[in-house]
């Protein structure tokens, strides 16, 4: 999947560099808006039909929601602090941080509704987050406990980093990671467009 994502961007970049006719640019906006809606309906369908995950959330009690909430707050504050050091405006750094590791969605959202430069930065930031998560999860599980090991993955603990979490921690933590990743994934398409508009 990662390779396909990179290929898609590369094909687009080559087309944009060499052969994109000027007349196509007008159509492009309509096409990408339609694609955005299609993708978001699909993401919504996926999130909404995860009844089992939402049922587990109820079984675990609402305190478990503190975990994605704290991960979200930590990510946003961290990104704003990092952005401050880099001289980025708060709306950009916070919206990029609100990708929570979901690089494809945060990248294309920002490229579409804000600027391609911020989209590219969001894409690379959230790819980096996923890579950092892969490295840190096993270390954190041993050093700081299973619950802390969930935190670097952000939204990716619903899918891509879940197998690693299940290996590095126990069954309870894996379920908590899935609930947390699902809750964070649901926040990405809401928070990114909201924060970029502050």
């Amino acid at each position: 999947m990662t390779i396909l994502v990179i290929c898609a961007i590369a094909i687009g970049a080559l087309a944009g560099f060499w052969l994109l006719p000027q007349e196509a640019v007008g159509y492009l906006d309509t096409v990408t808006t339609a694609a955005l809606c299609l993708m978001l309906v699909g993401i919504g369908l996926d999130l909404g039909s995860r009844r089992e995950t939402w049922a587990r959330l109820r079984a675990l009690g609402w305190r478990v929601l503190l975990i994605p909430l704290l991960i979200a707050v930590g990510s946003l504050v961290g990104a704003v602090v990092g952005g401050f050091l880099l001289g980025l405006p708060v709306n950009e750094s916070s919206a990029i941080g609100a990708g929570f590791g979901w690089y494809s969605l945060s990248g294309v959202l920002l490229a579409k509704i804000y600027s391609v430069e911020t989209g590219a930065l969001a894409f690379m930031t959230n790819v980096s987050r996923e890579v950092i998560a892969f490295v840190l999860i096993p270390v954190l599980a041993v050093k700081l406990g299973y619950l802390v090991a969930i935190s670097p993955g952000g939204a990716t603990t619903m899918d891509t980093t879940l197998p690693l979490i299940s290996k590095a921690t126990d069954a309870d933590t894996t379920i908590i990671a899935m609930v947390s990743g699902t809750a964070l994934s649901a926040m990405v398409p809401l928070l990114v467009p909201l924060l970029i508009r502050i």
Binding site: M39, L40, D46, S104, G107, V108, A111, E117
Partner: peptide, 27 residues
């Protein structure tokens, strides 16, 4: 089917992001 729709939408957007990148020399 829904997954396929999401993937199609995502790839159109990724290619469009790529195209915007490719045609923007500053970026």
């Amino acid at each position: 089917l829904a997954n396929a729709a999401t993937t199609v939408g995502l790839f159109v957007l990724l290619m469009s992001m790529g195209a915007q990148l490719g045609s923007n020399e500053d970026v």
